[in-house]
Simulated scan of single mutants.
Amino acid sequence: MDRAEYASYVYAVCRPPGAGALDGATGVGGHPVHLVAEGDLAAVVSAVPLDEFDEAALQANLEDLRWLEAVARAHHGVVDRTARRTVAVPLRLATVYRGDGRVRQVLREEHASFDAVLRRLEGCVELGVKVYAETGARRPEDAPRAEAAPPGESPGKAYLRRRRQQRESRDDAWQRAARLCEEADEALGALSRAREHHRPQDSALSEAPGENVMNTAYLVEDARVEAFLDTVRELDSRASAGTRVEVSGPWAPYSFASPGVGV
């Protein structure tokens, strides 16, 4: 392989895993994965064509959704396999260096940052929790009595009356969702080592019904995962009509893995 034409794509920084832990693993473009070790740190790396990942090419490729999806799937596949075998700091998509020598240099220069994050992530996974609200949904006991139209009510007044009822229904749904968010975050935060609040997901990009009103990642110790999941199920089982709680994971701890180093 002509190394001048290839760059080193880094998926994660980890504690060196046991022998054979990544045997047979392939990454972006189907290239074999290997480790670049430096002391008590190792980078999970594969070679990628420089003509796809230099600054100009990468800028264009990131606009190609098919290319981006393929790279993202390969990236997350390698990170997931690594995180199942050792504590790992996932790096952001398309973290590329000009050769393994540069990767090794970064491990030396940023040892303190990576070491601190790895210590924080040791024995933990990420669990994602979303709360959804559906306006217009009510429990039977909460439903207001329908207002009878006054005799001779004009079409304009009837329209305004219906709009007021719709607004009251939306306000009620938001209030119930807000209470559920507070309750969920308090209960789940008590079972977590850390939390990270993300921007709610755009409903136009999600197939899930309702509007996402809470989107939070929790860093949870392995020993507390079952208790965390049980709590999510209990919160959802007694959530008011039109609100619900969903959990995803466990995942590699992407939301808690920023060591603050540049590419």
Rank of each mutant, 00 (worst) to 15 (best):
R81S: 04
R81A: 14
T82C: 15
T82N: 04
T82L: 13
A83N: 11
R84T: 08
R84H: 13
R85D: 13
T86A: 15
A88D: 02
P90T: 05
P90G: 09
R92D: 14
R92Q: 13
R92H: 09
L93C: 09
L93V: 06
T95Y: 03
T95S: 12
T95G: 06
V96A: 06
V96C: 09
Y97W: 10
Y97S: 04
R98S: 13
R98F: 09
G99K: 06
D100Q: 12
D100R: 06
R102C: 04
R102F: 07
R102D: 08
V103S: 05
V103H: 00
V103I: 04
V103P: 00
R104Q: 15
R104N: 11
R104Y: 09
Q105W: 13
Q105N: 12
Q105R: 15
L107P: 07
R108C: 14
R108W: 07
R108D: 12
E109A: 14
E109H: 13
E109R: 15
E110K: 11
E110L: 10
E110Y: 10
E110I: 01
H111R: 13
A112W: 00
S113T: 01
F114I: 04
D115C: 04
A116K: 07
V117Q: 09
L118A: 02
R120D: 15
R120G: 08
R120K: 12
R120C: 08
L121G: 00
L121Y: 02
G123K: 01
G123F: 06
G123M: 05
C124S: 07
C124L: 05
C124R: 05
C124M: 04
E126I: 02
E126G: 02
E126H: 01
L127V: 13
G128L: 13
G128N: 10
V131S: 07
Y132W: 12
Y132E: 05
Y132S: 02
A133R: 09
E134D: 05
E134M: 12
E134I: 08
E134L: 12
T135F: 09
R139I: 00
R139Q: 12
P140Y: 10
P140N: 11
E141T: 05
R145I: 05
A146N: 03
A146Q: 06
E147F: 01
A148I: 00
A149T: 07
A149C: 06
